[in-house]
């Protein structure tokens, strides 16, 4: 069985990451498993842990009163779930539900924030990994907004 450090090292989010930084991260990490239908996180709840998906599929949803929830994105192997833990007041802004059996590494957000504050080199390395993902998602959201397949 792989230990946490090996699992983290091989996750796409940490591809090419310095071993000492992976070790720092291991201290905040735990192995998780979500059955289909289980929620990883809920809108409004404290964003105290985010997830590196190892395999499976996670749907990001927004609940609409009187209607079925709207899925606006799905995430899978190699992707991360959750960014609200980065920004105060650290509250989730959507629901995340496992669509199928999903295995993930949970990272304790408070722990990671502490380590980032303590070691700005580590903090900057983490930031450089998060910012491209946030930028890609912002870009994808813009494209979705265009509704390019809608009626002309």
């Amino acid at each position: 069985m792989k230990d946490l450090e090996q699992i983290l090292q091989s996750h796409a989010f940490l591809g090419g990451c310095e071993p000492e930084y992976v070790q720092l991260l291991v201290g905040c990490a735990r192995n998780l498993r979500f059955d289909a239908g289980e929620y990883l996180l809920r809108e409004g709840a404290a964003a105290d842990e985010f997830y590196l998906i190892r395999h499976g599929k996670v749907a990001l949803e927004i609940n609409v009163p009187g209607k079925a929830p709207i899925v606006f994105s799905t995430l899978g192997e190699g992707e991360i779930v959750g960014a609200s833990w980065l920004v105060p007041p650290y509250r989730w802004t959507f629901d995340a539900r496992a669509v199928e059996l999903t295995r993930a590494i949970g990272i304790d957000a408070a722990c990671l924030r502490r380590k980032c504050d303590a070691d700005s080199g580590f903090g900057y390395a983490m930031m450089k990994r998060f910012v491209p993902i946030l930028s890609q998602r912002l870009h994808a959201t813009r494209l979705q907004l265009l509704d390019v397949y809608g009626k002309p």
Binding site: A59, L60, E61, F72, R97, L143, Y149
Partner: peptide
Amino acid sequence: VSVDHADTQWRGHVGVVTTLIAG
């Protein structure tokens, strides 16, 4: 297959199709 919007019945991807190219 990826769709821009879906309800919870949809088992496939949600998001722009460009995101499926990388994987």
